[in-house]
Design a protein around this nucleic acid. Structure first.
Lengths: 129, 129, 129, 129
DNA sequence: GTGGTCTAGACCACA
DNA sequence: GTGGTCTAGACCACG
C-alpha cells in the first residue's frame, strides 16, 4: 500500500494519513484484521513525525476503523461499521458546508456528480477497474 | 438575518460566520448589492471580536461572495459567481474526504441523499418552503 | 472638463480627484490662471462630499499646482513648477516601489514602456492626438 | 538581511516590510526556497508586533512572492513570477500617477532616468556593484 | 518552535 | 460612522 503525503498541503499531515489509510481499506489493500505498520516504521518510511502517525492511528481507533491490540494496530474486522453520533454530526456539518458552497458558486449537479464518480473510481480495487 | 455562532465548536468562529452569511445569501435574506452590518456592530451583536468578523468578511471578498466599498461590505451582485482554481481544489479535497467517509461507514446512497435534501430545505427562502 | 470618480475604487476619492485635475491641466482643459469650480458646486456635480473636494484642493495648493485666492482656487500660473523636497521624497519612494515590483514580477522594459506611452497619450491635448 | 522600518512614515509598517523583503529577494540576500524568519522572531528583532509581520507575509503569499509551508514562510522558488490581473491594475494606476506627477512638475526624462538607475543600483547583489 | 485563532482596546483615514 | 492599522497578550493545533 502506498501512502502519499503532501507535506506542504494545508491539510494537516495526520488528516491526510487518516484518509490514505481509509483509502487503502476501501481499495482492499488493507484487509480486515490485517496489521498496520508500526508507528515507528511508518513514520520512518514516509519521513514524518512519530507523534503524527500515532495521532492518526488513535483517531482511526476512535472512529472504529482500526482497533488497538497488544501487538499493534489492526484493521477492524467488524462486518458493519456504524458511524458514531458525534462523528455523524461532524459528517453532516461537512456535508452542509459542501452543499452551501456548491450552491453559492452555482455548480451544477452534473459537475459535482462527475467529480464524485472520478473520486469513486480511485476507491475501487485495481482489479475491478 | 439571524447569525448563530457556537463558540465551543471546533470550527473557527470566522468559518462559522462565513457559512452563516452564505446561508443568508442563499435564503435571500441578504440580497445582491445589499450591505452587511458593519464589522463592529455585527461583532457587538453576536458577542465576538471585531477582528474575527473582519477576517470572515475579508475571506468572503476573496472568494468573490462579497465586495468591499468605501462605505462597507456588500453582497456581490455579479450574476454568476465562478469558483476560483485554488478554492476548487479545496472543494474537491473536501468532496473526496466525504465520499471516503460515506463508504468507510457503509452509509447508503439514500441516507446521504436524504441528509442532503434536509440541508437543501434549510437553504430555501422561507416563502418557498 | 470631465471628472471621472470611481467611488468603489480602493484609491481614496480625494486622491482620484487630485489626479483628475492634474490630468485636466496637462490636457490644457484647465489653463494657468483659470478658476476651478467652487468646492460646493464640484461636490454637487460629481456627487461627493464637500470636505473631500476641499481636501483635494488644499493638497493641490500645498503641492503648488493650485493657488488659493479670495474668490476661490485657480490654476497656478507660474511658468515653471518646482517639486518641493518633501514631495520629491515621496515621489522617489513611489518610484522605488514601482521599480521593485517591476523587477520582482519580471516585467520587461518594453512592457513597461508601452504602458507608459499609452498613459502619456491620454495626457495629450485632444488636438494633438 | 537587514530590515529597516520607519515607524513614523506615512506608509504602513506592513507595506514597508513587504518592500524590504522584495528588496532582499532582488539583492539575493533571500534565495528561492529559503525560509524567512518566523513572524514572532522578526517582529521581536525589528520591534513591531507579530500580527503586523504576519500581515506582510500573508500579502506576499497572496502576490505569489512567498509560499507558506507547515514549518513557516519561504521564498517562492517558481522561476517565473506572473503578476496577477488585480495587481496589474494597481500597478498601472501607480504608473499613471507617477507619469502625471512627472509631467506636472516638469521633471525631465533624464532626471527620472537617473533616479531610476540609482534605485536599480541598490537592488543589485553587492557583488555585482 | 511554528503559525492560527481570538480578544480588548487604541488611534487614524476617509467620506 | 465606516474600515485600516497596530499593539499586547493568551491559548491552541501541528509536528
Amino acid at each position: 500500500m502506498y501512502i502519499r503525503i503532501r507535506p506542504d498541503s494545508e491539510t494537516p499531515i495526520y488528516t491526510q494519513l487518516i484518509y490514505q489509510i481509509k483509502k487503502g481499506i476501501l481499495r482492499k489493500e488493507l484487509l480486515p484484521g490485517e496489521g498496520l505498520p508500526s508507528v515507528r516504521s511508518l513514520a520512518g518510511d514516509i519521513g514524518i513525525n512519530m507523534h503524527t502517525v500515532n495521532k492518526a492511528y488513535k483517531l482511526l481507533v476512535e472512529e472504529g476503523v482500526l482497533t488497538q491490540q497488544k501487538k499493534g494496530f489492526i484493521v477492524n474486522s467488524d462486518t458493519k461499521l456504524e458511524i458514531q453520533p458525534p462523528h455523524l454530526l461532524l459528517y453532516k456539518e461537512r456535508l452542509e458546508a459542501l452543499v452551501i458552497d456548491t450552491q453559492i458558486f452555482g455548480m451544477s449537479e452534473e459537475m459535482v456528480e462527475q467529480m464524485k464518480q472520478e473520486i469513486e473510481a480511485t476507491l475501487k480495487k485495481d482489479d475491478e477497474k
